[in-house]
Amino acid sequence: MNGLYALKPWYAARLSGVRAFLVAHGVCPSAITVSGIVFGAVAGAVLALGETGPWVAAAVATALAGRLACANLDGGVARDGGRTTRFGAVVNELGDRLAEYAALAGCLALADPALVACAALAATLPSWAALAGAAAGARRPQGGPIGKTERCVLLVVFALTGWPAWLVVLAAGSLLTAVVRLARVHRELRTAPAPQETGS
């Protein structure tokens, strides 16, 4: 683990009480995933007002903190409540992407649409690289340098300053992260034994 992803165990421990409460009350993990999308949309709506500054940054930070909490809780609630399903993993991935898109969409009020589109597309690349590696049998790489948590931080800084350069950093950092993750996958698969072919 590297980057802010290294804080995930600590963050999960802080949410343990909330997780236990949700499990005890039978809250559906998919409902938590949808809540994460709503938090992302709230962050996007605040940005869509076209204002920047400390209060805007604080509102965006609060919404994105909720989004990250939901991203941490949905899987934990599913595991602790014995409700894990393979399709639940699909919902989790889609929820992450939609929450990020919803937040980034708000940047259209403050930056060139082409730049926002590039940032949104680049933001998906680390996950695609990780999922491709997992599909090939590698352990799913996580972390940065610009992972999900770092992208949320960059959006907060963008909300504070309104400087489009932060979206450039987000896009370039996401691309670099995808390359780093692919390199990790390549190293692992290169040293793994090749699967044996079976006759038909």
Rank of each mutant, 00 (worst) to 15 (best):
A6F: 06
R19H: 00
A111W: 09
N92S: 04
L125K: 04
K148H: 04
K148Y: 03
V38Y: 09
V91S: 00
G95R: 05
A171S: 10
L189I: 04
A102F: 10
L108R: 15
A102T: 11
G95L: 00
R83H: 00
G36I: 07
S200L: 13
S200P: 14
W10D: 03
Y101G: 15
K148E: 10
A13H: 09
A159K: 02
T85Y: 03
G82K: 01
V77P: 06
P141R: 02
L7T: 07
M1Y: 07
A71K: 09
F158S: 12
L121K: 11
G95C: 02
S174L: 12
L160W: 13
T149M: 10
E100H: 01
P113S: 10
G44T: 12
R83F: 01
V180D: 11
P141H: 03
L175T: 12
G147R: 00
A31T: 14
G144Q: 02
L121G: 15
E51Q: 14
P9G: 00
W55M: 15
V185N: 05
F158I: 05
Y101S: 14
A171W: 00
A57R: 04
A192C: 01
W163Q: 14
V168W: 09
V23C: 03
G173S: 10
G53T: 10
L125W: 07
V153R: 01
V56C: 08
G26L: 08
A114S: 13
N92M: 00
A165M: 12
A103Q: 10
S174W: 06
G26M: 06
L4H: 08
R97V: 15
L98N: 11
L167Y: 05
T149A: 13
G26E: 13
C152N: 08
M1V: 03
G44A: 11
A109K: 10
G199N: 06
F39C: 15
V60H: 07
G76H: 05
R151K: 14
A99N: 05
V179I: 15
F87D: 07
A114M: 13
V91H: 02
L160C: 12
A13G: 02
P141M: 04
V179F: 13
V60I: 06
C152Q: 01
F21D: 13
F39T: 08
A119L: 08
A135T: 10
G88P: 07
G75Q: 00
A192M: 08
S30A: 15
R83A: 13
E197K: 08
N72M: 11
